[in-house]
Every structure is written in structure tokens, then in C-alpha cells.
């Protein structure tokens, strides 16, 4: 057994145990780790934002750039400054401007991108090709998948009563959904256990030196 003499390994080990103590119940050790975590991460986030976003996207083009279009950046700065309106009761509504721009930009992006990235890809993946029917087993499997896709979509059909054929299809859709959720769940269990093994290795190997 070779207990680590590195103080940083000790700190990491103590924090690891402090987080795990949460599984028993809330306690001062967890609270300590939680508050330290939040403080560190928000400081880290501020530094990342400053150096990865503000400096390259705002400061560098404005201070060192030569392109005349760089002055357009003053517009988002102005919009961004409006969000400080929330510090005043009278002008708190100014925040609606940055919100309106962000949401408009998002909505504009998402419409064409959703078609390209989600819908087309899913449709072309579902339509059976020759390769997908190469053997009877493959053909049956892909047919089952096709039924899975269609019945699931009917479950998300909102504007009609789920009765008759639509009702039966939506009901089948729920069964398919549950089977799929189960598969995802089962698939993830082992991956999560391996995370724990990783932490245990740190504690027992890096820190306490019990295992090699």
C-alpha cells in the first residue's frame, strides 16, 4: 500500500468522498464540495467566456480589425447593454429586445436546419433500400422498424381523437416507445457503472495505492 503524498491527490480524494457522502444524506461535507464546485465553475465560466468569446469575437475585431464591417458589432453590444435594464424597475422591459433578437435568430435558423439535419435524414433512413432487404430476416427487421417509426409518429398526432385505427396505431406506438426506452436504459447501465469504477480506481490506486 502506497498512500499518495501529493497534496492535490488528497484534495481531489477528499472532494470525491464529500460528493459521495450525498448518497447517505445532505451533510456539511457535501455542502462544502457543492459550494466550492459552484464557485469554481462560475469563475471558470467567466474566464472561458472572456477569453473564448469576448476577446476574439468582440475586442480583437474592434480594436485591431481593419474591415469597415467591424462596426456592425456595435449593434449587438447595444442590444446586449439593454439587458442591464433589469436593474431598474422602470426600464426592466428593455430585456425584451435582446430576447426578441435571440429568439428570432433561433427560429430563423432552426426551420431550414431542422429539415436538412433531422427530417431528411430520418426519412431516407427509413425508406427501404435494396441492401435493407438483402435477406428475408433483414427485410422483416426493417419492416418492423418501419412499423415502429410510423406508429410512433401517430402517437404524436394531436389533433384527432386516438380511437379506431389511429387509436390502435398510437397504442402500438406506445409499446414501441417503451421497448425502445428499455433498450436505451439497459444500454446505459453498464456505461454508468464504468464511471463508478473509474472513480474507485482513483481512490484505491492513485490515492490509497491499495490496488495496482
Amino acid at each position: 500500500m502506497h498512500i499518495s503524498t501529493n497534496p492535490w491527490v488528497w484534495i481531489a480524494a477528499i472532494l470525491t468522498l464529500a460528493i459521495y457522502s450525498f448518497l447517505y444524506k445532505d451533510n456539511p461535507f457535501y455542502k462544502f464540495a457543492e459550494h466550492l464546485f459552484m464557485g469554481l465553475s462560475i469563475g471558470y465560466g467567466a474566464v472561458v467566456l472572456w477569453y473564448n468569446s469576448i476577446i476574439p469575437r468582440l475586442w480583437n475585431p474592434l480594436a485591431h480589425g481593419t474591415s469597415p464591417s467591424r462596426f456592425y458589432l456595435l449593434i449587438p453590444i447595444a442590444i446586449g447593454l439593454l439587458s442591464f435594464g433589469i436593474f431598474s424597475k422602470k426600464y426592466s422591459w428593455l430585456i425584451k429586445y435582446p430576447l426578441a433578437f435571440s429568439v428570432g435568430a433561433y427560429a430563423g435558423f432552426s426551420i431550414p436546419v431542422t429539415f436538412e439535419a433531422s427530417i431528411f435524414e430520418q426519412i431516407s433512413g427509413t425508406i427501404l433500400t435494396k441492401q435493407m432487404m438483402a435477406t428475408p430476416w433483414l427485410a422483416i427487421s426493417n419492416l418492423i422498424m418501419f412499423v415502429g417509426v410510423i406508429t410512433t409518429i401517430t402517437y404524436f398526432y394531436f389533433s384527432k381523437h386516438h380511437k379506431g385505427l389511429l387509436g390502435k396505431s398510437a397504442r402500438t406506438g406506445i409499446v414501441f416507445l417503451m421497448l425502445a426506452f428499455g433498450a436505451s436504459f439497459g444500454y446505459t447501465v453498464m456505461a454508468r457503472i464504468s464511471l463508478l469504477i473509474g472513480r474507485m480506481q482513483f481512490l484505491l490506486h492513485d490515492w490509497l495505492g491499495i490496488i495496482k
Binding site: I144, M145, G148, I150, I153, L177, A180
Partner: peptide, 9 residues
């Protein structure tokens, strides 16, 4: 098969 279909849906 069973997972992919509903996920596509």
C-alpha cells in the same frame, strides 16, 4: 431495430 424505429419517430 426495436430502438431505432421509435427513436426515429
Amino acid at each position: 431495430v426495436l430502438q431505432l424505429g421509435p427513436m426515429r419517430g
